[in-house]
Design a binder for these strands. Structure first.
Lengths: 200, 200, 200, 200
DNA sequence: CATGAATGAGCGTTCATTCAT
DNA sequence: TATGAATGAACGCTCATTCAT
């Protein structure tokens, strides 16, 4: 366990302030002054802890991903092929927008930048890949059965993000508990198809 | 049919230029000068057609949605309950990121703004609702069968957007044709379940 | 003769303002706001005419050199071997700090930067070389007589600049007319030495 | 002899560091942090020894002048009328830019400030006066002979500084040994003129 | 004595917007 | 209609100076 000094605490506080500032003002309108105000410090000191605004914002994205990742993973470790665990994982994914709205807000704000900022795009792609891999591990050897299962993890993650975005922008759109049921049915049925999606 | 004058043509050209500018520079780095340059006009004239940058950017979003909507719809009209047509629609959705990358780029760029800009959020929510309704119409009375089908249209749209975003950020992530098959199977299986998702 | 448009006039005004600002505040304390104030314009517009502060300051140096060069040269053209013309040129050099104090001020201010800014150093070195060449042309074939004459042009320029600097910082240090006499004697005597500096 | 305490040693170290920092970064780009880094101390402690950056930089100039002065003088003391010693002094002056490049760098950096900073201007003028006086003492009673000799010391110092500046900015401009010969010839010839420059 | 975290004014620069032409 | 020069507020960032430790 690495020692956490005063400096790391401060750095964390600035990140936290930046996340709050992004949530309330949006990434594209965000000034260093905003972040400083949210953190209750002067603008100058931020440059003591981070090289530049860009550096800070990359750390924000990293921290946001790490934190959210831990939340999603914590309840279902260890990872092993298991339908039960996959469904539990699905539940967690479904709860992200409600339990971690700031995470979804940060994610949405960076999505637009991803198109023109390779560093951000790479990070988000890596996130997608990681999450997809987790699903794959829950599916285990089943994935050798047929071609279509190759796409199931991607579809699950896409579905999770799609729903997360939609719910974040309108929390009246669907009932989270009902959606949990629907999701489980959708995935279960897909896996139950013994034909494995071979279109005859 | 409203008369389309010189003014409207010009307005359209500016919108088109703005879309191109967003695609190539990103919404957050976009200056009026960029847009003017893309349109081949002076910055001053833009203020003759639009009140402000904000006004213009809202029209851009509107136009982008309208245009894309027409594209997605055109091949499957008229809308009536039909599994075949639903699958055809699914195909169209799946093709959006490849056939209309500018649309996806614009969408991604506005997503981040949606969180703190109610006007944009409302527009995007309305888009989601419209698209969801279309799916519902393809499903028709089937939707009265059971509770879970209420969520199917939302899941389909979420899936479509989720996949679209992921493919936009990494077009190597999946093969579009294969994904088409997987999507069809996913939806077909869900619909085939006579139990309607009632977990007993 | 190139056409001089409105833009060139403006650019010239900004250069003039920058020179005045350098004279009164010094190069190292100079802000774009200072220059704008001296020119009676906003800071923003300067960037319409010059790429950056660095760009503007380089143009200031260039313009300053060009202008001063023309002043020094104008009365003694055409250049040809002639002791009389050399002495006349000497007179001009001796008068620079009195007739063009702003030039000397600008020169002094850039000297300090020359040590760490290659572009400025190169420009100043080129100036030195040009001025030295002029002296060489006034001397003509005489320069083949002996080795030491190789250094005479350099010594003359060094003397001119040295005196210019000293007089600029203290105009009571010497009487310009008397110095004119002393300089002429110094150079005349050196040229009169038939031994050409061969130390026997 | 004043007692030299720990404090004075520290003060000297800071001055030395500041000179090095000026040489490597230039006066106008110099931050207190740079100086502190060069001295291996914290920025805070510098304010224990010096009132402000301005104060420190004035001490740097003073120290630089004192130190260089000692170097130039040491080999030719005591001062008395003597052509031989004058020529030896000339040699020393000619060698300054090669032997003490830091001194020339510091001098150049402060020259630009001299124009608008009276304190610096006064210091530099005093330096010029001192150096000129030394030359006058080497010339001794000869100086009563005629008017022109009044300007010889000034011309020698101007020449020394002019050459020093030019060589500092381009050490390929002339060969130092050859220049030594040229300088000696220039001065010797001037002194040899029995007419003393009386313009008839 | 000594540190370096912290401040905040001021820098160079950008850009939405206006308006004389 | 159409231009683009001009404005000035706001940005990201730096740095002399202070002060709790």
């Amino acid at each position: 366990m690495p020692k956490v000094g005063m400096e790391d605490i401060r750095k964390g506080q600035v990140i936290e302030a930046a996340i709050n500032a992004i949530v309330s003002k949006g990434l594209s309108n965000l000034s260093m002054k905003d972040i400083a105000a949210h953190a209750g410090v002067s603008t100058g000191i931020i440059y003591h802890y981070y090289e530049s605004k860009e550096d800070l914002l990359m750390q924000v994205l990293k921290a946001s991903f790490r934190q959210s990742h831990e939340k999603v993973m914590e309840t279902v470790e260890p990872i092993e092929p298991s339908l039960e665990k996959l469904l539990k994982h699905l539940e967690n994914i479904n709860l992200v927008p409600k339990d971690n709205p700031e995470y979804m807000a940060v994610f949405l704000n960076y999505l637009g930048e991803a198109n023109h900022n390779p560093k951000i795009r790479d990070m988000i792609n890596k996130l997608f890949k990681n999450l997809t891999n987790y699903i794959g591990q829950y599916l285990g050897d089943v994935s050798t059965d047929g071609q279509p299962l190759k796409n199931l993890p991607i579809m699950i993650i896409a579905l999770g993000f799609g729903l997360g975005i939609m719910w974040t922008l309108n929390d009246q759109l669907y009932d989270i508990n009902e959606m949990d049921q629907s999701l489980k049915k959708l995935i279960t049925n897909y896996l139950a198809d013994k034909n494995g999606g071979k279109s005859e």
